[in-house]
Every structure is written in structure tokens, then in C-alpha cells.
Design a protein around this nucleic acid. Sequence first.
DNA 1: ACGATACACTTTATCGATAAACAAGGCAAG
DNA 2: CTTGCCTTGTTTATCGATAAAGTGTATCGT
Lengths: 349, 349
Amino acid sequence: MGHVASPVTMRTLADRLGVSVTTVSNAYSKPDRLSPDLRDQILATAKELGYCGPSAAGRALRSGKTDVCGFLFGGELAEAFADPYTVAFLAGLSETAEKFGASILLLRSPGDGDDAESQLLQRAAIDAIVTCSATSEHPATELLTQRGVRVVGAQRAEVGDWVAVNDVKAGRLIGKHLAKLGHRQIVVVVTGETPDAEAHEITPKELSSVAGRFAAERFQGLAEKLPEATFRIVCGGCKPKQAGRLAAAQALDVQDRPTAIIAMSDALALGVWDAVRERGLTPGRDISITGFDDIQDAAFVGLTTVRQPIADKGRFAGRLAMDPDYPQRQITLPVELVVRSSTGPAPRI
Amino acid sequence: MGHVASPVTMRTLADRLGVSVTTVSNAYSKPDRLSPDLRDQILATAKELGYCGPSAAGRALRSGKTDVCGFLFGGELAEAFADPYTVAFLAGLSETAEKFGASILLLRSPGDGDDAESQLLQRAAIDAIVTCSATSEHPATELLTQRGVRVVGAQRAEVGDWVAVNDVKAGRLIGKHLAKLGHRQIVVVVTGETPDAEAHEITPKELSSVAGRFAAERFQGLAEKLPEATFRIVCGGCKPKQAGRLAAAQALDVQDRPTAIIAMSDALALGVWDAVRERGLTPGRDISITGFDDIQDAAFVGLTTVRQPIADKGRFAGRLAMDPDYPQRQITLPVELVVRSSTGPAPRI
DNA sequence: ACGATACACTTTATCGATAAACAAGGCAAG
DNA sequence: CTTGCCTTGTTTATCGATAAAGTGTATCGT
């Protein structure tokens, strides 16, 4: 039952066969450094004694290699699983990880209290780490790099490894589409910290710090293609669906309703969608809604959005994380406008 | 840039302050074994020198504790993320893990080749492991237990820790519901290995080995409440949605169409749903469809199903995994029939 | 016949931390 | 004044494995 196991180590094998521990080690990690015969013998004995290969802890300590890839999420992990974008990213990442014989360790990025969480991240036994949610990259990242952990980001930057899309371009695609449809009065909905669990309006300058750099870039693209439009930017909180609903509520319950709501993610857009329907409005006719990402449900409800290859992002991120020799260290993936029924001509006011 | 880090260890701190390494260690893991003053001093120096707490590798090696909880999935991890059930389970699990200050390591259960994958699992540095998908429990599990890793299962059993639902009862709920509606000709759809990527029929006796024990138990409940019905059981493969579609295709394209299709999961049922609609049939009128789990999309399309508290399963599993002193080691969670529009009276033939 | 290489292992020295046992001073009880 | 326990540390001995350097024998070219 609760027996504490026979601690079969390399020593056990070595003694049994009369060879040195190093030789046993080599049998596993450097097969060309011993004769095939001996190697076979060692592996056979291992099987016989129930030895399952070098212990992760010992190996990690001595060699520094762990065959583990961290996944860093900027919030509670439970939220990560509630977000289709993140889940799709993880699917791609895990695919690559499996190819490299690595496992994935789920970690959350520490809040502001440096303490417990920060340390959990800092001292985690990992070879590399991939960040997914774009927000809150820097705080922890630097120390990790210093420690020798490869860090793969999810945003374009001058230095370091990353996999991302051109967010300015993504913004332009939406902007151009809405411009053509005649929209001039627009509300942009973003996720981010809210002080009082209440939606609040922010300025374009605050965008980067509240919602992340990617949001600011998309907005730049939007504004570029919608020079005559007036924008309001509303932040509804961190949990996408709820945030979308909250923000949309604030945007809609005013005299001068916008003709289009641009959500910074599909998950957010689905929240907006609910708020819109609750008010008896029909998306695409009474008001246009757009998202970003093209998650599965977007096709389901008919949301106009910008598709980005999420799973591929995960796959490439894994590649950069696990293969230090992969030549291209900064990868930009394509985006594509997907027009569905949630957008239509701006209604005359 | 790529500097290999200043290896700040406990030694560094100890030397700096003129205390022993053990004392530094105690500052972190046994605060009551040194004076508060000294402890504060040590932590302050740690911050100053950029020391982030005991390295995971060293600690794991010496003490055996890792603060990592494994998550074992019985297939490619990418599939895990495609399955809403698994994702919901992970959300619950990660919630508990966070509470305990632990991280989650994603692992896949080895196939039949004992080699690489099996070892990845066996030597993983984890304190405990939680299995989610019910299939393929035993092969690896035993060795882990022997190694001192707590194993938390997802199926009822005589021994060991688990969190599960009463699957016989779940089966009865569906059986009773369909019996009342007059269904007598029924196809049961399950996931499992298929030799030729083609749907194939299996017998009730094969159920347990092909689809897992839980499937067999549910079937037992079904049969009990539908004594006059004739059953065919079809397995369509491992990927739920596709499997459902494939299996349903085989079930539908025959002379004598069933009046109800019972899928062993909602994900599977959604595949069945597609196949049904593709043939111009309306679920709930021309043919009844049921699932198990009550994932989000089930409510969306109107699928009759048996709800099980998936996230709670994850939460409790985490609790058992991370708290060896939690008194109740075998937990059964409730199930509940949820009737929606996908079931209706059996059409007269 | 000689040094130079290769090969197939072994020795030695850690990797960073913690468990277990031990030591010195203080303080209370007898 | 002594005994004995508590507090606050220190010493010593590993945890399991790998890097780096060393040893002894065969092989080879010249």
C-alpha cells in the first residue's frame, strides 16, 4: 500500500553490474560512449529492477536540463481555461512539446505582491517559458532570462524571442471594413484591471498600460483607417465575457449610441453580443460588432473578426522555447479579415 | 544578453551574512527555527542579491517535495485542450493548485511502447498526479504509487483516492428518461481506439476495455431502465466530435434507424448532432440525442444530458492530490438529468 | 618499435538544498 | 546551585545525477 518505494537509483544498477554510476548515466544520455552490449545489459537490468530512467530532480540539479517548458499566464489559471484563445494556444504548444519530449508546467504570472507567487515562478525548474496573454510580460521575465531560462514572448519587440501577429495591420483590417460600411461613431472595448469592478472609460494613451501593447497597436491601425470617426474606449474588467457585457452596457445606455462596437477579442465580443441582444438590438443591423482572434464560437454566432492562427502561435512558441538553434527567433504570423453577419452598414441616425 | 546568470545560491547569502547554509534554508522553510531578526535580515539580503528562494531542483532532490501536481491525460495533450470536459476539469484543478501554491505539470499517459513517454511520466518530478480521462489508468499508475507519488483517479474503485460520479446512476437517469419517451431501438456511441479509423460495432462485454469502465457502468444503468430495448454500441474513434459523426453515420445509414442515440459524452453528442442534421433530420423530433457531462455548448444547442460537476471534480481531485490529510479519500459527486430539446417521444415507425 | 589516437570505462568533484544530529547560551524549576 | 529543557543556531551526511578529467588497452601509421 503506502510503501515508500524501493529507491532504485543508478547506484543500484551500477553495483548490480559492477560498473560505475557514470557508465549507467551514459547508457541513458550518451549512448555512443559505451559499447552497445553493455548498454543493452544496463537497460535490461533497469527493466528488471524497475528503474525508470534518471530522476528528474537529480538530473535537473546537476545538468540544469529539465525537459519542461513553462507556460506563463497573466492571471488566475482557472481563467486561462475559460478563455478559448488561451486553450487553443495551449493545444498548439503542447503539440510541439510532445514532439520534443517535453512536458508543460502551468504557471501564473505574479501579481504585485512579490512574494509567494513570484517565487513560485522564479524558482520553477524549467528550461524555457512561453508567455501567452500579452499583458504583464516584463516584471518577471527579466530575472528568468538572467537565470538562463529562454523566454518566448507573445508580442513583437526589438529584442528577444517572440511569436506574434502584426497588430497594427489587424487593426487596419477592421478599421477599413468599418470605414467602408460608413461607421463613424465607435466604441472600443478592452480587458484590463478595473478599480471598482465597474466599466470605465480610458484614453488612447492609457491603452497600452491598461490593456497591453497589442491593444494600443490595434487601435493605431483602427484610427488610421477611420480618420473621421470618434472613438470611446471602455474597459470592463479582466474576465472577457463579463467585461464585454459590462463595457457594452455602459456604451449602449447613453443618448448617442455608437454604430459599431469593436472588441479586442472574440471572447470579449461575445459578452458585448449578450448585452446587445439583451437590449433588443440585432448585431449587424442595429449595431455592428467585431472581435479579434476567430475562436470557434465566432463562426457559430456569425461574428466578424480578424483571424489569427492561434494554435500555430502556440506551436511556433514551443519551437522557439525548445529548440535554441531554430534560426528565426522572431516570428510574425499572418492575420486575415473574416466578415460575417455581425457587421453591416451604419444605420442612419 | 545571453549571460548565464550570477548563480546566487544559499551559499552566497550564508557567506555574506556569516551564517550557515542551513540557517538560510530554515529562513525559508522553517521560520520558527531562527530568530525573527535574523530571518528578516536573510530575506532582505536575498532581495538585495536577487535570490529568489530555494531552487526547485535542489529542494526536490533533497527533500522529495516539488510543489508540483501532475495532470495525466490519456492521449495527445492537444486533444485534451480540444475537449471541453477536460478543459473544465483543468480549470477546477488549477484553482485548487493555486490555493496550495502548487503548479500543474501536464503529462500524457504512455501508449503501449514503454519507452520514451513512459519514462517521461515515471521520472517526472511531482508530488502527486491526477488522472482525468478515465481510460488507461492502471498501466503507469502502479509504478507511480510505488515511487511515493499520490495518485488520484477519476473512477470509482475499491482502493486508492478518487473523485468520480456514480456512473450507473447517470446511466439510469438517461435510461429512465428515454424509456418514458417510448424509445426501444437505441444506438450507444462511445469513444475508443479504432483499428482502421472506421466506426465499428462492439458488444457490451467489450465496452469496458474499449471505452473504459465508466462507459460500461453507464450502460449497465441504461440497460436496467430500458429492459425492452435493443442496443447497438458503436465506437467511432478517439477524437470525440469526429468519432460521434462517424459512429452516427454508421448508425443512421441503415434500414432500421434507431429512435435514439446515446452518446457517452456531450462532445461526442455534438458530433452525432452534425451527422443527424446533415441527413436532414431534426434532433428531438425525428430522432433523440443525449449526451453526458453538460458542457457549455450542450445548453447552447439544447442537448439533453446528465450534468456532472466537472470543475468540482477538478477541485476535489486537486485537494486529494495536494492534501494528504484530507480525510475523505473517495469522493462521489452528484449527477442530475438535464432535459432539453434534443429528446422527444419516439416516432412511430 | 614508437608515439599518437580511439575507445570504453572509472574517478573525482560538484549541482543546491535539507534532514538529522549536535552544541552553546539562557532560563525556569527543584 | 544544579539539572534539564528551550531557543538558536552549526556540522555533517546525503539526495541522484552529470561534467570533466583520468586510466588502461587496442589499433594504426610510419
